[in-house]
Design a protein around this nucleic acid. Structure first.
Lengths: 122, 122
DNA sequence: TACATTATTGCACAACTATGCAATAATACA
DNA sequence: TGTATTATTGCATAGTTGTGCAATAATGTA
């Protein structure tokens, strides 16, 4: 255990499974509570990609992509391997996309209910 | 539109569907990325409850519960109504529990994979 | 070996978030 | 009307998070 945490893991949530006592699902949901990371997952669904493939697609610094990937990897959502100077990443469990789709469906119906409510007020 | 935002909605994410341009699912996942709010949803699944029913169960200040409920309500995950001095809350769409269960399943299998990996290293 | 390419990490910073206390509002009841 | 109960909101604060730049590490190539 390093005396000083690496900067990516500077907080309790991402320190590790053992030290973090909260409902572990909050880590998964926190990982998904960022549109950049959702975009990265969607890109990786197309096929394995290295950090420098992703950065230009999201128009953010490579270092930021690297950190997002580290978070997704720490959860086990993606795996990685080295090929020359490149680090490739791929989705481990496709069911993560079921969760994304379920969230879309719920939000869609929520919006529909909201609309109906407004219609009644007219 | 109020000149100054209410303090609960002091940030972009919770301001409203219209001002927030990110993937709307990030709001849903952010709402679930908090163990207190997950606990609140679980309690409400047992049946409708008012703010003062929930606070002692979670051992946090009523004001905090009130804010968590406001966030869940802003998403449409819960609805509320007044009965005397009490404000009752109830879950709107039970499918939110499907998402919670799906997250559990994914994490369980991730942990299993991790364990197998460590076993191989022995 | 020297240089180029790719990825990660240290650092700094602005913005976001959960929380508790105190003040206020809303309602019921004596 | 005054008092009690419940809920929300203002304010303050410590901790979390996403981001970019610069430095460094890791690898391939001339």
């Amino acid at each position: 255990m390093p005396r000083k945490l690496k900067n990516i893991w500077r907080n309790r949530r991402w320190q590790g499974f053992h030290e973090y006592v909260d409902d572990p699902r909050t880590r998964l949901f926190a990982a998904l509570a960022c549109s950049q990371r959702i975009e990265i997952l969607k890109l990786l669904r197309e096929g394995e990609k290295c950090t420098c493939d992703i950065a230009p697609r999201l128009r953010i610094d490579i270092s930021v992509v690297s950190r997002h990937l580290a978070i997704l990897k720490s959860l086990g959502l993606v795996e990685s391997w080295k090929e020359g100077v490149n680090n490739y990443y791929a989705v481990v469990d496709e069911r993560i996309f079921d969760i994304l789709a379920a969230a879309s469906n719920i939000l869609k119906d929520m919006a529909e209910r909201q609309r109906e409510l407004f219609d009644k007020l007219r």
